[in-house]
Nucleic acid binder design. Structure first.
Lengths: 149, 149
DNA sequence: TTATTATAGTTACATATGAAACTTATTTCA
DNA sequence: TGAAATAAGTTTCATATGTAACTATAATAA
């Protein structure tokens, strides 16, 4: 560190901000795919997608799977129930625990949105060569495991 | 796409969510470096850092440089002025335009935080080999230019 | 038992954020 | 000129978010 370059903060090169900028742009574009047409928030979409893959799950489990905190999960579920996209009952074995499922309507809407979202991810990946995609997956995994939850 | 794997959404593998998760963890840790000791918000820190590098700048230019919207910039500047870290006057040539500078106190605090932040970035980069760091910089640049601001 | 502790989920409160409206100053150009 | 359009910043309002407090249920253990 003799050149006096690495001990000055330059926002344009600062890794956390570069990551954050890219992520924000991508998240905004992604959200537009379901927020406008379907009036679904990002949290709601995440819960919906997770319920599609993992039916009969509780709110707490949903939080684990999606890395959302329990308040965000609770609100997303409330929103989805109000819109008739999710059905909630409480478990008869443990009446604290909810049992969640997509309704018919929820499933229908999910299957309308899913291809749009997958297409968007593909459009992102297509910016990169196959080699670069592998690098990206690897780097994300490595960083994510090391920064700790 | 014949194997039926790439046409189902799996949150754990979905690029925007992996990016978002990593970014959120990093942003939270970064914010802790200045929020607790110095009572500075992320927006305020960003403006502070930018002013250190670009003195005598307006709020609008600050917004351009930091990719923040003008409301966030306005609020950050108000917070920094209230804390006595930034000095604001309006330009005599164009009295709509502000001219911003760090105060002595602002500069002092900035120079206390800067090494902590740089150290944190280094600790992130040190997770990766030099080769991987180059890959990451390259991938971020490529994705960022292609997703469009 | 029954008192204690822990868990699932919700609610309340305080703060953060973004979009649109607004104020003031400057520029444009009929 | 001076009316209309534009630009810089601020304020307002509606919504989003996170922390902590709260309710209800279940598990633990004395």
């Amino acid at each position: 560190m003799a050149d006096g370059e690495n001990d000055k903060l330059v926002l344009e090169r600062f890794l956390p901000y570069r990551l954050s900028f890219l992520t924000n742009v991508i998240s905004r574009k992604l959200a537009r795919l379901y927020s406008e047409q379907f009036d679904i928030t990002p949290h709601e979409w995440k819960v919906l997608a997770n319920l599609s893959r993992h039916p009969n799950i509780s709110a707490a489990k949903t939080g684990e799977k999606t890395a959302m905190d329990k308040v965000a999960v609770s609100r997303a579920i409330k929103g989805l129930c109000d819109k008739g996209l999710v059905h909630k009952v409480f478990s008869s074995e443990d009446r604290r625990r909810s049992v969640l499922n997509l309704t018919k309507k929820g499933g229908d809407i999910y299957h309308q949105i899913e291809p749009l979202v997958i297409e968007y991810e593909n459009s992102l990946r297509d910016i990169l060569s196959q080699e670069e995609q592998n690098q990206l997956d690897r780097l994300l995994s490595k960083l994510t495991t090391h920064v700790g939850g």
